[in-house]
Nucleic acid binder design. Structure first.
Lengths: 285, 285
DNA sequence: ACTGCCGTACCGCATTGTGGTACGGCAGTC
DNA sequence: GACTGCCGTACCACAATGCGGTACGGCAGT
C-alpha cells in the first residue's frame, strides 16, 4: 500500500493476519474514534497530525463524512461528530431490543428493591448505559442512558469483566487508563484483579463509592447462550440506604432477576465466537 | 467507475456535481442507513439485493464494519447495527453540548408549565429527541431520547421546518413519505405547507393529536447566530390539560424560553452556510 | 506589504478495491 | 442417503479508484 510508510520487511506477516484491507473504511472509523476521544472540535491540520495522515487524504474522507452527516463542521470550519451517529446509534440499540426484552424483569426488580436500576453493555473499556428505571416513589439518581463510565469503577463493569473469557478480559484491562475518581476508586490493575476474583466467587459486584462519593451499587451480569456476559444490571442508591446489611438481600434479588433474563435470552444456537476481535480497532499509524 | 452499471451517456453531468467519490465510504454510510431502516437483521444476500451490490463487494465492506464494531452479527450470521454507533452517537451529542447549555432554561420551563418538555434537532425528515424533562410532580409521558419521529406530525418538526431557508425546506418536504398516524395527521404536502404558514406567523407550532390521539404539543424553534433553526423545544401533555384555552399561555412561556436559549447561543460568527448539502445522501444504485 | 498557515482543488501514477468465479457447508427435497 | 440449491467465504487478475504531491487563494498576524 502506498498510504502508510511501510518498513519493507515483515510485510507479508501482517498480510494474512488482516486479510481485508479496505483502508478507507478503516480510516473512517479511526477518524470517528479520534473525534470521539477529542473533547473539542478539531481542524483539518490537527486531525492530520493526530492520525499521521496527509492533508489531501484526510480532507477527502472528511468531506465525504460531512456530506453524509456522519460529522459536521463548526462555524469555524472545525470537525466534530455528526448527529447521524446519534440516530444510527439509537437505532442500533432498538434493534438489539435487549432493552425491551429486559424491561419487565427490570421494572419488577426496581419495585422490589426500591432503588434505581440500570442496564448496560460493555464497549471496550467502558460501560455504556442502555436503560434505567427509577422506583416509582421518588427520583433517586439522575443519569442519562447513552452515557458511559469506565469499567473499573462500576459494579456493572466489574460484573461483566469478571465473567469474560480470560484472554478478552486481559485485552480490555490492558487498555484501561486508571483515574482516581474518589478515595475508594480501584486505581491499579492489581486491585482490580483482586476485586474481580471476589466478584467471580460471589456472582455479583459492588461499587462502594468508587465512582462517586455517597453512591453504592450492586451489579450482576446477564449471560447469553454461551455464558458470555453480554450485559449487566445494577441497583444503585445512596450509601445510606445501600449498606453492608442490605447488600446481601439486594444482591439476591438482583441475581435472581439476572438469571431470569439470561434464561429468556438463552434460546439461541451455537455458531461462531462472534467476539473474535471485537475491541480496540487499531489504526496502523 | 466499474462498480455501478452505468448508462454510458450523461455520466459527466453527475461527475462535477459530486466531485469527491470515495465510493467505499459512501457505500458504508449507505449500508448503515439501510440497516438502520430495516427492523430486522439482514443476511448478506438480502443486503446485496436491497443495495444492488455484488456479493464480494458488500461482504468486504461488512467484514470491515464488523471488525470495527460499527455493525455486529447475530448468532445466525445476519448483520445489524453495532454498539459502537451508540457510543459515537452519544459522544456526538455530548460534544455539541446543546443539551447541557439548554438544560437550565429547559427545566425552568418544565416547572412553569408543569408538563413534559422536549428538546430535539432536525435530521433529514425526522426529528431526533435529545432530551426531555418531566415536571417534578408526576410522570406524564414516556418517550426515550434518541428516538425520532417524522417532521410533519410533530410540533418541533413543524417549528423548525417553518423557519428553514426556502430551498432546504423544499428539499426536506420532497423527501417526506406521509403516513397517517391519527385522523388528524397532516398527510399531504399542501396541508403541511398551510400549517407551516401559520407557524411562521405565530412563531410556534401545534401538534393537535397528529401523532397520537390524546396528546397535544406546542413547539418553538431555537435559532443560532444566523437565524437558522438548529433545534426546537416543545411542551407536550394530555389533550385534557393542553387545551385551546391554555395554549396561548404555554406558547408565550415556551417562546420566551426559546428566545433566551437562542440568545445564549448566538455568540458565534459568520462563515459558510454549513448546511450546504446536508440531507439525504443518495447512493447511486 | 510580506509571510506563514490553513483549507481546497487538481493531476498523474500505481495501489487498491472491484466483480467474477470457485469452494465448502448447511438445509430442504425427493 | 444422495442431490440440489442457497448462502457465506476465499481468491484472483485487471483497471478504475483513491493516493500523495503540489499549487492556489484567503485570512491573520507581524
Amino acid at each position: 500500500m502506498h498510504t502508510v510508510v511501510m518498513p519493507p520487511p515483515e510485510m507479508e506477516a501482517v498480510k494474512h493476519a488482516d486479510p481485508y484491507q479496505l483502508q478507507s473504511i478503516d480510516r473512517v472509523v479511526a477518524l470517528l474514534d479520534m473525534l470521539s476521544e477529542s473533547d473539542i472540535p478539531l481542524s483539518l491540520a490537527e486531525i492530520c497530525a493526530r492520525m499521521g495522515l496527509h492533508k489531501s487524504t484526510a480532507h477527502r474522507s472528511l468531506i465525504v463524512l460531512e456530506r453524509t452527516s456522519m460529522i459536521e463542521r463548526t462555524p469555524e470550519g472545525k470537525f466534530r461528530l455528526g448527529l447521524k451517529l446519534y440516530e444510527l446509534g439509537n437505532r442500533a440499540v432498538e434493534q438489539m431490543d435487549l432493552r425491551d426484552r429486559v424491561q419487565p424483569f427490570f421494572r419488577r426488580l426496581a419495585m422490589e428493591v426500591g432503588e434505581t436500576v440500570h442496564l448496560s453493555v460493555l464497549q471496550r473499556t467502558k460501560v455504556v448505559y442502555l436503560d434505567k428505571v427509577e422506583p416509582n416513589r421518588r427520583v433517586c439518581m439522575t443519569s442519562k442512558s447513552g452515557t458511559s463510565n469506565p469499567v473499573y469503577c462500576t459494579s456493572m463493569g466489574k460484573a461483566m469483566l469478571a465473567f469474560l473469557p480470560e484472554e478478552l478480559r486481559e485485552e480490555i484491562i490492558s487498555k484501561i487508563k486508571f483515574t482516581r475518581l474518589t478515595s475508594k476508586t480501584l486505581c491499579t490493575r492489581e486491585a482490580l484483579m483482586k476485586s474481580l476474583e471476589r466478584v467471580k466467587k460471589r456472582g455479583f459486584a459492588i461499587d462502594d463509592e468508587e465512582i462517586e462519593v455517597g453512591v453504592r451499587c450492586v451489579g450482576a451480569p446477564i449471560f447469553d447462550e454461551n455464558h458470555f456476559p453480554i450485559a449487566a444490571v445494577s441497583v444503585s442508591g445512596p450509601a445510606s440506604r445501600i449498606t453492608v446489611q442490605s447488600v446481601p438481600g439486594i444482591a439476591e434479588k438482583l441475581i435472581r432477576c439476572c438469571n431470569e433474563i439470561s434464561r429468556t435470552l438463552g434460546i439461541h444456537d451455537k455458531r461462531r465466537s462472534r467476539y473474535s476481535s471485537p475491541l480496540f480497532h487499531h489504526y496502523g499509524n
